[in-house]
């Protein structure tokens, strides 16, 4: 606890004012409105509304389109997290085997972090679009009927690839840091015991990386849930059909394109609950990480 402070009574409020004002106007007020709208039914023009209790939530959970979006989101998030973590861990282990070139490899691995998700999606669309994508061409030659604009599974594969590609750099950086934090003595002891490398990796290195892996799992899930909106909007617009419509895309689409306010607000509230759960989970877990780290 700090003992010495400045005595001013008004100045701290002046310093806090900009942040508090923006927070209240753009965060709390709209969030409160989302809660309010989620229990009201409003006509699309906002002329009249009435209280309907949890009716909107009941409707949302009974809506096959919402359940579909939920399923799409789970599949999409699991695939992105699995591939982005797996590939990044593999490459981080490879780079830690080396003495020379580490700095160069790191620089070459991390820059996709700076590419906007929407652009990552477009890059993959350019390569794989059915009309002039250079990589769609060999797929066609192999006899695959490649058309992600018509085939739902192929569209999913495309957005998963783009989302994974963009996230590898982030995970790579954290895995490298995690590997470097493993105490040398443990690894040396394993080497003296004659453990073969593969065995040593799964019994020593991988368990010791668990805090990093869990942390990244949460971050990747949040990324797949929210930050990938740009990829989906730019590449598939949720289609074909609704095969790539995630929860966030559906909130946007219902509230903004289809103007179904009550339902969109109820969906926003559900999303808020998901974020709060994930954040709480992350913070509980980070406390542990600090404790052991």
């Amino acid at each position: 606890m700090r003992r010495t402070v400045f005595p001013n009574k008004v100045l701290p409020w002046v310093l806090l004012a900009p942040q508090l004002a923006i927070t209240l106007i753009f965060f709390y007020w709209p969030a409160a409105q989302a809660f309010r709208q989620s229990v009201l039914r409003e006509d699309p023009f906002g002329l009249s509304s009435k209280y309907v209790g949890l009716e909107n939530f009941r409707k949302v959970f009974a809506d096959p389109a919402y359940l579909n979006a939920m399923q799409v989101t789970v599949v999409f998030s699991l695939l992105v997290a699995f591939f982005a973590l797996g590939i990044a861990l593999f490459l981080a282990v490879q780079v830690e085997k080396l003495v020379r070139g580490k700095g160069f490899y790191r620089t070459m691995m991390i820059w996709p972090y700076a590419v906007a998700p929407a652009i990552a999606g477009m890059l993959w669309l350019f390569m794989f679009n059915p009309s002039f994508g250079t990589l769609a061409y060999p797929l066609r030659l192999m006899g695959i009927d490649w058309n992600p604009l018509l085939n739902g599974d192929q569209a999913m594969a495309l957005v998963v690839a783009a989302a994974t590609w963009k996230q590898i750099s982030y995970n790579f950086l954290f895995f490298v840091a995690g590997l470097q934090a493993i105490p040398r003595s443990l690894l040396e002891a394993a080497a003296i015991d004659g453990a073969n490398r593969r065995h040593a990796f799964w019994t020593i290195v991988f368990p010791l990386l668990a805090p990093t892996t869990f942390f990244l799992l949460v971050v990747n899930t949040v990324y797949a849930l929210f930050d990938t909106f740009g990829i989906i909007h730019a590449v598939t617009s949720g289609g074909p059909g609704k095969s790539t419509e995630t929860l966030v895309y559906k909130v946007y689409n219902d509230g903004f394109v289809n103007l179904i306010m009550g339902s969109s607000a109820a969906q926003s509230v559900i999303l808020m609950v998901i974020v709060i759960a994930l954040t709480a989970f992350q913070f509980r877990f980070i406390e542990k990480r600090v404790h052991y780290g």
Partner: peptide
């Protein structure tokens, strides 16, 4: 805990 994605319409 309130990213813009969860409060699109009211914001």
């Amino acid at each position: 805990m309130l990213p813009v994605e969860v409060r699109i319409q009211p914001t």
